[in-house]
């Protein structure tokens, strides 16, 4: 006779248990499968088209031939400018939230709520905001004040600004996490030596959180590089003979380029290899950034 410990549960119980676990496993594996399928297809279809010329050439014959160089360059300029505008603001906000704010204060809670809300606003609304505020209000305002005509239209500058706002929550959350990881004892030791709060922040807290600030910036760049909806009407262009030479120029963008090739091109079928290749480059760019961020973060956590 079997020992009670090894006694069978009823067959229906066991079956139910199997179904429960199998369902969950299927879901997880299905997601994994879709992901692998996407990668596999992109690489198979687009891989052969990735050549040096594809990366370094301008598009030719209304985007049906040639390369993606201006789109790559435009995306790079865009995210760099975005980083310059967004990261200092995000870092300062995170410093405020961890170092200055009383956690229960109304203002701190409002800031947190705003950051969470901002993270949930659809990117197309940021696009409208970019048009309504940056281009039509700030840009036109600058033009009216200075007599120039450069600012009152979509441009690299306003797209970067829009993306800086869009990626602000990413920076804030990530920097805040890094600042919170700085041991309280370090702050106390510094203050006990007579350092002011500001000296403690600049000399002890922030230097200890640099990798967090870096992670936040990289994640924001990864998010910004792939974002299309927010810049649709804020300065991106589907074709350009030259690289942007000023922040008020229009620019090409990898994601937008893919969108145009896939939906607006005169002969969608003919450019299929180009579309796949562009997808690979765009994914490579975002994942390179994400992997870098994960790497920097893991070094941060093991230290």
């Amino acid at each position: 006779m079997k020992h009670t410990f090894t006694q069978d549960l009823g067959i229906s119980k066991r079956l139910l248990g199997f179904v429960a676990v199998a369902t969950a496993a299927t879901a997880a594996v299905a997601v994994l499968g879709i992901l692998l399928g996407m990668f596999g297809q992109f690489l198979a279809e687009g891989g052969p088209s990735i050549t040096w010329d594809f990366i370094t050439d301008f598009p030719r014959n209304s985007n049906t031939e040639g390369g993606i160089f201006p789109a790559l360059a435009g995306t790079t300029f865009l995210v760099l400018l975005m980083t310059l505008m967004g990261v200092p603001v995000g870092t300062a906000t995170a410093i405020y939230l961890t170092e200055f704010a009383r956690q229960d204060s109304r203002f701190a809670r409002s800031v947190r709520f705003a950051v969470n809300t901002l993270a949930g606003v659809p990117s197309i609304v940021f696009g409208l905001f970019g048009v309504g505020f940056f281009v039509q209000f700030v840009g036109v305002g600058i033009d009216a004040a200075t007599g120039s005509v450069a600012f009152g239209d979509g441009s690299l500058l306003w797209s970067s600004a829009t993306l800086a706002v869009l990626t602000l929550p990413v920076v804030i959350v990530s920097v805040e996490e890094a600042l919170r990881a700085v041991p309280r004892e370090l702050r106390e030791a510094s203050l006990a030596l007579g350092a002011t709060r500001w000296q403690t922040i600049t000399k002890v807290v922030v230097p200890n959180a640099t990798s967090g600030i870096l992670t936040g910036s990289i994640l924001a760049v990864g998010r910004g590089a792939g974002e299309v909806a927010a810049i649709l009407f804020v300065g991106v262009t589907y074709s350009s003979e030259v690289l942007p030479s000023a922040v008020t120029d229009k620019f090409m963008h990898l994601g937008y380029h893919l969108y145009v090739l896939a939906t607006q091109s005169p002969d969608v079928e003919a450019t299929m290899p180009l579309q796949y290749a562009t997808t690979i480059v765009l994914l490579a760019l975002t994942f390179l950034l994400n992997f870098t961020a994960i790497f920097v973060r893991s070094r941060l956590s093991t230290r």
């Binding site: 041991p183 004892e185 370090l186 106390e188 030791a189 510094s190 006990a192 030596l193 002890v204």
Partner: peptide
């Protein structure tokens, strides 16, 4: 001057 329980040098 103050010396803490958990000694953490910078």
């Amino acid at each position: 001057g103050m010396v803490f329980q958990k000694s953490i040098p910078f």
